[in-house]
C-alpha cells in the first residue's frame, strides 16, 4: 500500500470512529432546573437546536418552559413532547410558555415536528 493510500484509509477510519463518538456515544451535559415558587422554570433557546437540550426536572412537580424561538425556518415552528402529549406552536422571535407536570420518572424526548431539532427531558 502506498503512503497516500495509507493516509487516506487512516483518515477515513479515524473519521468514522470520530463520528461514532461525537454523535452517538457522547454524553450530553444535563442542566438541572431549580424550583422557583413551586414551579420548575427553564428557558430554552430555539435556534437550529434547543439550548439547553438535556433538562433534568423532578417528577410530580410542575415545569414551566419558556421557549424563545430566534429563527424563522418552518422547521422549528412546533415543539412536541412525545409521551407527555403536549405540544406548542412557537411564533418566531417570541417567547412561548408551555407548562406540564410529568408524573412518572423517565426520559422524554421533545423535538420539532419533523425531528430535526431534538432534546431530552429527564424526569427524576
Amino acid at each position: 500500500m502506498t503512503t497516500t493510500q495509507l493516509l487516506v484509509n487512516g483518515v477515513g477510519l479515524a473519521l468514522i470512529a470520530w463520528i461514532v463518538w461525537y454523535f452517538w456515544l457522547y454524553q450530553k451535559q444535563s442542566v438541572a432546573v431549580a424550583e422557583v415558587a413551586g414551579v420548575q422554570d427553564v428557558r430554552v433557546q430555539v435556534k437550529g437546536g434547543y439550548d439547553p437540550d438535556r433538562i433534568v426536572v423532578k417528577a410530580g412537580r410542575p415545569v414551566r418552559f419558556h421557549f424563545y424561538r430566534e429563527e424563522e425556518g418552518a422547521c422549528s415552528e412546533m415543539v412536541v413532547f412525545d409521551g407527555l402529549d403536549k405540544s406548542a406552536t412557537l411564533p418566531a422571535y417570541e417567547e412561548t410558555t408551555l407548562e406540564l407536570t410529568p408524573a412518572t420518572a423517565g426520559e422524554y424526548n421533545f423535538q420539532c415536528q419533523m425531528g430535526m431539532l431534538r432534546g431530552t427531558l429527564v424526569v427524576e
Partner: peptide, 18 residues
Amino acid sequence: HFFTGAWQAFRHHSANMN
C-alpha cells in the same frame, strides 16, 4: 440555511438533513 443549520446541529452533537 443548510450550512448554518448543519453547524447549529453540530454544536448540539446532532446531525440532520442540513
